[in-house]
Amino acid sequence: MATQSRATAPGTGRSLARSRPRYGEFIVKTILLIAALISVATTVGIVAALIEPTIEFFSEISLGEFFGSTNWGPLFNPPAFGVWPIIVATVEITLIAILVAVPLGLAAAIYLSEYATPRVRKIFKPVLEVLAGVPTVVFGFFALVFVTPLLQSWFPFLDLEAKNALAAGLLVGVMIIPIVASLSEDSMAAVPNGLREGSYALGASKMLTSVRVVVPAAFSGIVAAIILAISRAAGETMIVAIAGGFKAVFTFNPTNEMSTMAAFIAQAGSGDASVGSIAYKTIFAVGSLLFIMTFAMNWFSARMVQKYREVYD
């Protein structure tokens, strides 16, 4: 008996082989490739723009002076180049933001994934993500004219300055809640229902199932969301510039005015430093350091995702 050709469907005379080129698919693939190349080229361009001025800066200022001093004032006379005050301020405000965003974001993600009905989820998730579209300058002025006076009236013993790291960190945390909540909810929604049903079959409550089954199963995605939020908080400019201030003081007290790395770049890049001067090159040195810190966090996130990623059939 003659065998039927692979290219012909059984019972039909039509060939399953591609009859004509799919130009639409080729165009889509080309657009996606171009988008990916633009992303890579942008990153390479940023690195290329930072390298030369950074090398010139460190040819005049030693690494020992840059990392070995706690006096920062490149725009002062005489200048000081100890970078630790703005590093400490960046880390401190980022930590405050994470302490706000992670509990609230994860709680919102658990509710949307495990408790909310499809109708409620369809309404509340877009509303939550609207926070990501609010201009950061609005958050900054809100922190300056509302949050700081409110904290001063509620906690007078804190002796808050008019601009302080606490208010800036709180509003940065509110700003990154949608990142933590949305990405974490997506990871939890991808957990197979079979894991939930198995937990319920063993007598676990919905809360226990959410915390002990769903969250660990979605751990890699949650970690990626948190690291992305940390990177976003570390690079925030307008909120910390308006609410946190520009005073670079080496202190761990969040009630004081502080200047972060991003705030310094905004201040120095606004025209306070003449092009080609050592103060101007400081912008690129600080930018390179911030880029390295952000890159390290994203690399760590990728490794965590790879290590703890759960694959389900």
Rank of each mutant, 00 (worst) to 15 (best):
V88Y: 03
I110D: 00
A101C: 12
L128K: 06
V138F: 09
P74F: 00
W72D: 01
F155W: 10
F141A: 01
P126Y: 05
L144D: 05
F76W: 12
G45C: 08
A80P: 03
A49H: 11
P135M: 00
T54F: 08
S113C: 08
L106G: 11
N71D: 15
V44D: 02
G140R: 00
N164L: 08
I87A: 08
E92V: 10
N77E: 13
I46W: 07
T43C: 07
A165Y: 01
W154I: 15
P79N: 08
L104T: 12
A109R: 03
T70R: 09
N77V: 11
A165V: 03
S62D: 09
E60N: 14
F142G: 11
A167G: 14
E114R: 00
P103W: 08
E114N: 02
V134R: 04
W84M: 08
P118D: 13
Y115T: 11
A41Q: 03
P103F: 09
T70D: 05
V44M: 07
Y115G: 02
Y111C: 03
I46A: 04
S59A: 15
A108L: 10
K125W: 07
Y111F: 15
G73C: 08
G68K: 13
K125C: 00
A107V: 09
W84E: 02
I123P: 12
V147F: 02
A143S: 15
L150R: 08
P53Y: 00
L99Y: 10
A143L: 11
A143T: 02
K122A: 14
P156D: 10
K122V: 00
I86G: 04
W72A: 05
P74W: 00
V130C: 04
V127E: 00
G68D: 08
L104W: 02
E52T: 15
T54E: 14
G105C: 09
A107W: 12
F67S: 10
I93Q: 07
I46F: 10
G140Y: 03
P74I: 02
L158W: 13
E129F: 01
A41G: 09
W154E: 14
E161I: 07
A41V: 12
G64L: 14
G133Q: 02
